[in-house]
Every structure is written in structure tokens, then in C-alpha cells.
């Protein structure tokens, strides 16, 4: 692989709270190449959304703070840019779409105006150009009758349409990286597939890198090229989709996959990972997954496992990774 579009090295994000400092993201490294989709997977509170916001330097500070690491976009370090320089990256080089399209559009403005804002900020288009481009973008993301839709308000559109509008806004400046933070969670199952297909198709068309944040392993299997599994702010496993689904090594990944699958003989039972994500104020000693891990040994309770690299882009944070094959 040539130079990756996005290169994250050792990214750590802290939150200072009244109860102490929380490591929301710890020593996170991953890369996304051109035209590649990398899925960031994990339960709620595993730090995936925080990591995404950190890339755009949108962590609310205080209480949050990026304490260390490096984020390079096409070789440019983002963490040392000035506030006005990073603003020029946001929406222009890196675009983001959010979980809830109901909430992510401003209710008082028309679609034209909201798409136009991006075009005006970064491309300096005139009013007339903005209108034409907005219609063109809506057509690109498959909104029917874009000439009429563009004059409407968010409440006139369905959830799937709004998410398409969000994607249109995100793509307005042909970004290098698209961050999709659970883009389909708030949508109907039937619409989910359409939106995902749309993102995939546009990714191929523009050669974007896509960072897909999700907890839905079905989506991962269908759309991602590589997978980063996160737990309590740390990467616990990384690999290609086939490696993750066919040759997973971390017990947490196994648990996630087990919870997602329903097999003959399960009856009405939903499989789950026993226990809950530990409180960030009360991290267990040793491996953070150890209290919930069916394979935990004595050393898991006392020592923290490091990331073990098996091959380029194939890493696992587990002592017994070698043995724990499925």
C-alpha cells in the first residue's frame, strides 16, 4: 500500500472529570488507504466516536484533551494545525456524517441553504452556483425530484432522505476521508442497505477513504475491508474482514460475533457477553476485558497485554491470542 490517506499513530484522548481523569482513547493506531473502508467496532463507551471526533479536533476541551499521538491526512499532521487551518480541513478534506439525521440538520433552514453553507465556506461559490450544485449533489445521492426537495425544510423529509442529504453535504467538497458515525443506526432496516450501498458506491467513485463506526457486525461484513475492534478505549484486534470473521483471535471479538449470530438451537435466547463494560473510573487490573473473559488466566489479572503483531495490519491485544483460535 502506498501512503495511506489517514494515518493515526498512538492517539490518546483524556477527559478530566470531577471523579478523575478518564482515558477515553488510549494509544490508538490505524491507517486507512485510498478507496478503503475501515470499520471501527465496539460496544457503547468503547471510545470509537471519541476517536472519530478527535480526528477532526472536535473533542470539547475542557473537559476533553488530545494528550498524545499523531493524525496525518495525506501526510499533513492535523494535531498541530492552528484553529483556522483545522477549520479548513473540516468539511473540506474530512467530512463526517452522524448517527441521527433527524438531529443533524438545522430545523430552521432549507436544504439548499444547508448544503450551500459547505460550498460557500470552502469553495466560495455564488448563490446561483450553490443552488445548482446542491441540486446536483442531491441527484448524486439519489434524492428524487431534487429541484423541489432543495427548497424544503428538514421536517419535510423522511429519515432516509435526510441521511442522503447529510451524505450530499459531506460529499460537497469531495473529501479525502469520510467519517460515518453509525450512519444507519437511526434508519429502518430497508433503508439501511440503500444508504450503505450509496456510501460504498460514492467511495469507489471519488476514491475516498471511509471510516465506518458501527456496532452492527452485519454491516461490517458487507461493507468493510478491514476491521478495528475497540474495547475500553483500546484497540484489541485489527485485521481484514475475512480474518476477523474466519480467524478471530481476541475473546472479545468472539463475544461480539457470538452476540450477533443466531444459530439453530439458540431458541429464544439472545446470546450476550456476560457482564458490562467496566466503569472508566474503576478499571480492572491487568487486561480490561479480563472480568468478562471466559478464557482469563492468572496473568490476565495482573499484567496488561500489549498489542501483538502477527502480520502487517493483523494485530491482537491478548496473551492467549496464539492459542485462542476459533
Amino acid at each position: 500500500m502506498s501512503q495511506p490517506v489517514l494515518d493515526v499513530q498512538g492517539l490518546s484522548v483524556n477527559f478530566r472529570t470531577s471523579h478523575g481523569v478518564v482515558n477515553a482513547v488510549e494509544d490508538l493506531s490505524f491507517q486507512i488507504g485510498e478507496g478503503e473502508t475501515v470499520a471501527i467496532v465496539g460496544e457503547s463507551g468503547s471510545g470509537k466516536s471519541t476517536a472519530a471526533l478527535a480526528l477532526l479536533r472536535l473533542i470539547p476541551d475542557p473537559p476533553g484533551k488530545i494528550v498524545s499521538g499523531s493524525v496525518r491526512l495525506d501526510g499533513t499532521e492535523l494535531l498541530t494545525l492552528s484553529e483556522s487551518e483545522i477549520r479548513h480541513i473540516r468539511g473540506f478534506k474530512i467530512a463526517m456524517i452522524f448517527q441521527d439525521p433527524m438531529m443533524a440538520l438545522n430545523p430552521v433552514y432549507t436544504i439548499e441553504r444547508q448544503i450551500g453553507e459547505v460550498l460557500q465556506l470552502h469553495l466560495g461559490m455564488s448563490r446561483r452556483e450553490r443552488l445548482l450544485e446542491a441540486i446536483e449533489l442531491l441527484r448524486l445521492v439519489g434524492v428524487p425530484a431534487p429541484e423541489e426537495r432543495v427548497q424544503q425544510y428538514p421536517h419535510n423529509l423522511s429519515g432516509g432522505m435526510r441521511q442522503r442529504v447529510m451524505i450530499a453535504m459531506a460529499l460537497a467538497c469531495r473529501p479525502r476521508l469520510l467519517i460515518a458515525d453509525e450512519p444507519t443506526t437511526a434508519l429502518d432496516v430497508t433503508v439501511q442497505a440503500q444508504v450503505l450501498d450509496l456510501i460504498q458506491g460514492l467511495k469507489d467513485k471519488f476514491g475516498m477513504a471511509v471510516m465506518l463506526i458501527t456496532h452492527d457486525l452485519g454491516i461490517v461484513a458487507e461493507t468493510a475491508d478491514r476491521v478495528v475492534v475497540m474495547y475500553t478505549g483500546r484497540k484489541v484486534e485489527e485485521g481484514s474482514v475475512t480474518e476477523i470473521f474466519d480467524d478471530l483471535r481476541h475473546p472479545y471479538t468472539r463475544g461480539l460475533l457470538g452476540a450477533a449470530k443466531w444459530e439453530e438451537g439458540d431458541g429464544d435466547m439472545l446470546r450476550e457477553i456476560p457482564g458490562t463494560v467496566p466503569s472508566p473510573f474503576d478499571m480492572p487490573t491487568g487486561c480490561s476485558f479480563q472480568p468478562r473473559c471466559p478464557l482469563a488466566e492468572a496473568r490476565c489479572l495482573s499484567d496488561r497485554p500489549g498489542l501483538e503483531t502477527f502480520a502487517p495490519g493483523r494485530e491482537v491485544r491478548c496473551f492467549i491470542a496464539g492459542e485462542a483460535r476459533s
Partner: peptide, 26 residues
Amino acid sequence: DREYVLGCRAIGMPDWEIILLQIMPN
């Protein structure tokens, strides 16, 4: 903290514009 404000920040909108043109009408 609503998502539309985060969305505005994510497209690189300066603070004064978010305050005056985005939140104010609401």
C-alpha cells in the same frame, strides 16, 4: 450540544457563524 451544531463545526464553520446564524434562529 445538538448534532446539527456538531455538524456545523464538522464542516468547518466558525463559532460566530454558528452562534449568530445557526443557533440564534432556534
